[in-house]
Design a protein around this nucleic acid. Structure first.
Length: 304
DNA sequence: TTCCAGGGGTAGA
DNA sequence: TCTACCCATGGA
């Protein structure tokens, strides 16, 4: 086994622990969360076809923007491989995303929001769009434990094994799932009615690998991206808002049972409410509504 | 056993 | 655009 350690640096305020712990994504395979030190590992397939294990951690506790990646691999990594890993980790941690306008709003709001500007607000994401969509579909109409189980079954059944530790696998490539007959897929991964959505999405992406690139098209306005997302079977308003967040567009609040619970608990004295009244609570946040809602949720149930 | 989850598709109005 | 009804699965 070979080992390579690389260092990354974020020039903007950046809180590593807050980013890793920001939402459930760190718990979904092929991510593996290390709760003792709030770091994570991940099996990743590089464009060269090489499969590596990355352990992502902060080099010190001061959250000064430095991140290290301990890479376990077979053979030698090329400069291109190292570059791909660097890009993927920076993308996952949103080290290149500009939060200055959001931080300015947070400072204006005062406590507890003002502390966000120390580098919080980044929500962890995956390095691959197909993976993001499948995972979001796996969060719909199911408890979080069920989401973890479905993703685990997917990775276990169709991920590519890491040679140095074959129990650990990558997230399945769309062409791998597309090549599996529907009945067999249904039998191996228990996703209920979501099975057809994921299987047909895999076929579509395998046939047209660039079909998801609209998600990274900065020339499109958010409403256009949302419309294209809603055209994907299995993606409704909640899932679209979640995916827009994952690509750095925060205008839409994901309305689900978690949102409704927070509204009842924090703003409506345990009573039912009009959705429009609830959503209006975040109007003042403009294009940052999703972040405002999410950290409102974290601050309410897990005040730091 | 029943209920429902980090909802969404579809038909019919 | 809105509503009613259906959808698989498994944990609580």
């Amino acid at each position: 086994m070979a080992q390579t350690i690389i260092s990354l640096n974020c020039s903007q305020p950046f809180d590593f622990t807050s980013t890793v712990d920001s939402h459930g994504w760190v718990e979904l395979l092929p991510n593996e969360y290390h709760s003792e030190d709030h770091t994570f590992s991940r099996i990743e397939e590089l464009p060269s076809g090489k499969i590596v294990q990355m352990h992502v951690f902060s080099e010190n506790d001061s959250n000064d923007g430095s991140v290290a990646v301990d890479i376990r691999h077979k053979g030698k990594l090329s400069k291109t491989d190292i570059g791909a890993i660097k890009n993927n980790v920076e993308h996952m941690l949103r080290m290149d995303e500009d939060f200055s306008a959001f931080y300015a709003l947070c400072r204006k709001k005062g406590k507890p929001w003002s502390s966000m500007s120390d580098g919080k607000g980044r929500l962890l994401r995956s390095s691959d769009l197909f993976e993001e969509i499948v995972k979001v579909i796996c969060t719909t109409n199911i408890q979080w434990g069920g989401t973890k189980r479905m993703v685990r079954e997917l990775v276990t059944a169709y991920g590519t094994p890491f040679e140095l530790d074959p129990e650990k696998k990558t997230f399945p490539r769309p062409e791998v799932i597309a090549a599996v007959p529907f009945e067999e897929f249904q039998e191996k991964v228990h996703m209920g009615y979501r099975t057809a959505y994921v299987h047909s999405l895999a076929i579509d992406v395998a046939e047209n690998p660039s079909s998801l690139q609209f998600l990274r098209d900065s020339s499109l306005i958010t409403e256009e991206v949302k419309k294209k997302l809603l055209a994907i079977k299995g993606i409704g308003n909640y899932a679209a808002a979640s995916l827009l967040m994952l690509v750095g567009r925060y205008e839409n609040v994901p309305v689900d049972s978690v949102f409704r619970q927070l509204m009842r608990d924090k703003y409506f004295s345990g009573n039912e409410f009009e959705l429009a009244d609830a959503l209006a609570l975040y109007d003042e946040w403009g294009k940052w509504k999703h972040l405002a809602y999410w950290f409102d949720l974290l601050n309410y149930y897990h005040p730091s």
